[in-house]
Design a protein around this nucleic acid. Structure first.
Length: 215
DNA sequence: GTCATGATGGTCT
DNA sequence: GACCATCATGACG
């Protein structure tokens, strides 16, 4: 079994969220490959999660791709921005993982053309990173992250020194008692959204080994 | 640098 | 016209 199948066959959605940190998210654009290392993500627990689009079994135009097989692409639009999610768990179980931030590693010139902003603000939010890597429609919905348009690359994956577990962002449905779903982040990485500047690790960016150069 | 606030747009009622 | 798993901006120190 390859790393992709191994990861997306895990039963524990939070564990998949933790293991995704350090994996490269890559988009094949007309100009070339563009992408970065995942440094922050957020888990959603389907029918039992009040802030999931599939809460209590909702299955409509917006949520239907959450029900796809583990490792499928689920893109949606919010406040005019595009968000990139991974559908996880077997077909029919609508768990999802939202990719919230990446550290640029591939096609840096393409990222800058798509989103001409310097530094960490280029990719430290879900709407920002999708703009930077060139996702501007819903056309990839339902395809697999093991394909070759928008895919996960494990070959150069980095290992976080420490993983932070934080409350989820946004989601005004998240009122109350149901404390399920988590936000995971690479401790000290400057591209994590809303990280305090003095908490960043400017030497290693929070990775165990950064000998793999960015280009 | 931090924080609070208004703008946002597509989708659904 | 309301809803929202967001973003950019402008006032501070």
């Amino acid at each position: 079994m390859n790393q992709f199948d191994e990861l997306f066959s895990l039963n524990d959605t939070d564990e998949i969220g933790r293991q995704l940190l350090g994996v490269e998210l890559v988009h094949k654009t007309p100009e070339g490959l563009a992408g970065g290392y995942i440094v922050e993500d957020e888990t959603y627990f389907g029918v039992e999660d009040p802030s999931s689009f599939a809460y209590q079994g909702v299955n409509n135009q917006k949520s239907k791709h959450l029900y796809d097989e583990s490792g499928s692409i689920f893109i949606y639009r919010m406040y005019g921005s595009f968000m990139i999610d991974i559908a996880v768990q077997p077909k029919g179980t609508p768990h999802g993982i939202l990719i919230r931030a990446i550290q640029p590693s591939r096609g840096l010139g393409i990222l800058e053309d798509n989103r001409p902003i310097n530094g960490k603000n280029q990719t430290n939010g879900p709407g920002k990173l999708s703009q930077a890597i060139g996702i501007h429609d819903l056309s990839l919905n339902g395809q697999s992250f093991s394909g070759n348009q928008l895919f996960l690359d494990f070959t150069n994956a980095l290992k976080p020194n420490e993983i932070l577990t934080l409350p989820r962002m946004g989601s005004k449905n998240d009122h109350s008692e149901n404390k399920i779903g988590n936000r995971f982040a690479v401790a000290g990485n400057p591209y994590v959204s809303s990280i305090k500047n003095k908490e960043t690790d400017n030497e290693m960016f929070g990775w165990k080994d950064t000998s793999i150069a960015t280009n």
